[in-house]
Simulated assay, not measured.
Amino acid sequence: MTAPVFRFAPSPNGELHLGHALSALTNERMAASAGGRLLLRIEDIDIARCNPEFEAGIFRDLAWLGVAYERPVRRQSDHFAEYEAALERLKKDELVYPAFMSRGEIRGAIMDHEASGESWPRDPDGAPVYPGADKQMSQRERRRRINAGAPFAWRLDTAAALARLDGHLSWREWADEAMDGVAEIAADPLQWGDVIIARREIPTSYHLSVVLDDALQGVSHVVRGKDLYFATSVQRLLQQVLGLPQPGYFHHRLITGPDGRKLSKSQRDTGLAALREAGETPESVKAMLERRASDWPHKGRSSP
């Protein structure tokens, strides 16, 4: 029997914080309990924000925590050709389209709609769903704009992708870290609208690269925070239309601050390096994780 494969997949666009420590340690414990393997993946497709200094920090922090993982480490920036090949498949199947609407045009379309007294749909993260006004644009006009250098992103035609599937779209969610029970969760990718699959300058996005990486690395157990619970719907849709295997999922609790907000690199929440420099030990950090996760449970929209 093939050993289960888990992965911890941080982005080197900031320092690891307590939330990352929880995810890495949870993956390590579950992999050990299941007799599985743990991989480390560096998700660095955002080449403008990711840098070698933060990547080196990831390795230092994991070594300090004592998290062991297999080598070699996969870096997404080394695999753009693989993502582009998948994007070409989606183009050939007419499941993506070039979206040209600027942020101002999107805001204008939403304001016009809401002026009529109707609310505009929001995705699970609270962001407005893309209007998709350019979905009906002719191929000739699309080519003209692209050749003229107009900025655009490739978006998934979610409704068209769902129409290609036979039957119910769902995923398997373990009830707890012990994986004693599993539930079948109905996937609803339409709540996200037409998500970005790739950009003009980068032939991929988080959703596309993560499902390809999991498939190519043989990941069977995706263990991550509850903030990504609803994103699973989009990823299951991509797995189905690309013919990729379906892993099982466990979305663990989040570490939050006193205000109930999940920890964030962009908010400069206390990093593991700062805790280490302040005299904390791996053991004290693990105790801190237990205390903070229980004291401040996540109450955001991304909880199941």
Rank of each mutant, 00 (worst) to 15 (best):
N147S: 15
D227N: 13
A198F: 05
Q191F: 00
D180K: 15
L169R: 00
L165P: 03
V223I: 14
G149S: 00
L162Q: 08
A163G: 09
D134S: 04
W192A: 00
D214V: 09
V241N: 13
L162R: 06
I146A: 08
R144T: 01
D180S: 10
L208Y: 14
I185G: 14
R236D: 13
T158L: 01
K226N: 07
S138N: 11
R164V: 03
K226E: 12
D214K: 05
Q217D: 13
L238W: 02
K226S: 08
I196F: 10
R155S: 02
T232E: 04
T232P: 07
V241H: 10
D227P: 10
L242K: 02
Q136M: 05
G167P: 04
W154K: 02
S209D: 15
D194R: 09
D227A: 06
L238G: 07
V195C: 14
K226D: 01
K226T: 04
L242Y: 01
R143L: 08
F152P: 09
F152C: 12
R144G: 01
A175N: 12
R199H: 14
D176C: 00
D134Y: 02
R143H: 09
P151R: 12
A161K: 04
E201T: 14
S220Q: 02
S205H: 13
A183P: 08
V210Q: 02
P189V: 12
W171S: 05
D166C: 05
R200D: 12
A148C: 06
E173H: 15
H221S: 14
T232G: 12
L162G: 00
G149E: 01
T232H: 02
D166R: 10
E177M: 09
G193A: 11
V211T: 09
A178V: 03
G193I: 06
V219W: 06
D166I: 05
A186L: 08
R199Q: 11
Y206D: 14
L238F: 11
M137R: 12
D214H: 14
E173M: 11
S170F: 05
R145L: 15
L212I: 13
G225K: 10
R172N: 11
A153C: 14
V219N: 03
S138K: 02
A178G: 11
D188V: 04
A215C: 03
V182T: 06
H221V: 13
A175Q: 12
Q136N: 06
K226A: 15
A231Y: 02
I196T: 15
A231D: 13
I146T: 11
T158P: 00
A175C: 02
L165T: 04
R140D: 06
V219H: 07
A150T: 10
T158Q: 03
A178D: 14
L156E: 11
Q136C: 10
R172E: 12
R200L: 01
L190Q: 08
R199L: 15
Q240E: 09
A215L: 03
R224F: 08
L237D: 07
E141Y: 01
R236K: 13
W171Q: 02
R140T: 01
G225M: 11
S205Y: 13
L242T: 02
R143V: 11
R236S: 13
A148P: 01
V222K: 05
A198E: 10
R200I: 13
V222E: 05
G218N: 12
H221F: 09
S233Y: 01
W174E: 01
P189H: 12
A186H: 07
Y206N: 03
I185W: 04
S170E: 10
D180G: 07
L156W: 08
H168K: 15
I185L: 12
S209N: 08
V241R: 04
V223L: 14
